[in-house]
């Protein structure tokens, strides 16, 4: 096992126009062009995609699980961001 490792790429696919690209999986490829071709072969054999993105896995910046509470917990306490926090008389109708 003295061969150099082939870089890892993450694959995102837009199933059809109107939808955003969604993570489908990952593949190994030496460069961007080969990564796109491999992503097409591996993840879109049955018309699953209209558009494919590939991104080097090492270029993705991810939040750290350790910071999960610090990052996301505060949103749970801000109930005034939700419409049901505000009281509107029924007579006003749908709002």
């Amino acid at each position: 096992m003295n061969e150099a490792a082939t870089p890892l790429w993450e694959v995102f696919i837009r199933a059809r126009n109107g939808l955003s690209h969604k993570h489908a999986g990952s593949i190994h490829a030496a460069d961007a062009e080969m990564a796109l071709q491999a992503a097409r072969d591996v993840y879109t054999r049955r018309g699953e995609g209209q558009s494919v993105w590939v991104v080097r896995s090492s270029d993705i910046i991810a939040s750290d699980l350790v910071d999960k509470d610090m990052m996301f917990e505060p949103t749970a306490s801000k109930i005034y961001r939700h419409p049901t926090f505000y009281e509107i008389p029924e007579d006003v109708g749908n709002m």
Partner: peptide
């Protein structure tokens, strides 16, 4: 093996 090596060498050169 030579295909993997060549692909990596080409990517590096580019």
């Amino acid at each position: 093996a030579w295909v993997r090596e060549a692909a990596l060498a080409y990517a590096q050169k580019r």
